[in-house]
Write a protein that binds this DNA or RNA. Sequence first.
DNA 1: GTCTGCATGTAAACAGTTACATGATTGA
DNA 2: TCAATCATGTAACTGTTTACATGCAGAC
Lengths: 185, 185
Amino acid sequence: MLKYILLGFIAQKPSTGYELKQALDNSTSYFWHAYHSQVYSTLRALEKEGLITTQVENGNHHLTRRVCRITEAGQKELLEWQNDPLMETARMKEDLMVRVFFSSLRDTPEVEAELRMQRKLHEQQLEQYLNQLVSNHRSNGRQAAENPEQDLEQIYQTATLRFGIAYERMYLEWLDELIYKLEMV
Amino acid sequence: MLKYILLGFIAQKPSTGYELKQALDNSTSYFWHAYHSQVYSTLRALEKEGLITTQVENGNHHLTRRVCRITEAGQKELLEWQNDPLMETARMKEDLMVRVFFSSLRDTPEVEAELRMQRKLHEQQLEQYLNQLVSNHRSNGRQAAENPEQDLEQIYQTATLRFGIAYERMYLEWLDELIYKLEMV
DNA sequence: GTCTGCATGTAAACAGTTACATGATTGA
DNA sequence: TCAATCATGTAACTGTTTACATGCAGAC
């Protein structure tokens, strides 16, 4: 999957591995994550497949940046992937659920403490996403609907961010309900 | 993580790989999934680590079942894992979000069709979880609160199932909202 | 006799994480 | 001078998926 994410970003504009890692952290972190090591090795694989070309450029001073550009084959591959609809749902992997599921032998106060810790983390996550939504809104307002394609890009990118927000809100509600129930026991 | 899930189940009662795979499908599928191949290879690793012992038993006829039992070391390991609280949130990986994020160049009707397909799948998922909730409720009612530990087990297992349900509901709402927005464009 | 369920595994490939490794620039 | 940011990569390991592989029992 990372392959298509990188291809998607590079199709929008030529980028370096470092920039792609930043893009991942800033705009896809609420539905996909990767370490820089995986970014670089996937880029290498993409180049080997002929889907991108890379070129070392000397920026200011002697900073070396390797810029990746999409090839025609890469564009074709991206289109094919986009036109091949998903027929399954993603399988979730949620560490905390595993822990909760097997918590009956643990001391309830310790479980509660863990849940409260998670609550704090998810609260922070939510706040961060909300800030991002506001700043996206501002920058979108500025350069308003120049063409319909840009409009769609905004719709889709906002939609995924809204998913992250909805997820965090659901998570917080779930945590609160469980913490409440445990307090009653 | 699968390691601890298997250890958790085996701690509850000795089980075969086949039974564990079934337990995974029936009761943890909404937060963790594994193929039978991974179950068997993880069991092998667990045995090598001395956390479980396995024993081939002949059931009826000559069906061979390899029953896994937790060792003292295994119990210790499980406890240690339980007492070491999670300090991070799980990183989500959601294939559909990746597709939506990069959908601005696709034909909107095709995106809508894909979203409707996903809607159907998530609806089915939700229905299945709701049925499970009802049947859990029934079997819990029957053998009511004999001891507080069993009570807790019910609370925790119902909580994780409720998480699955809340997730699917949130997902459906999100899909509906996006489909609606795309229809307006 | 064919399909489903029970029951067990191996092997290869792919994806993802952690640790190792380096070095320049900028600002406090 | 110390920390942060920019910038790139490799190596080893672990986790996950897909495909291969087998065989019995019972129902239809």
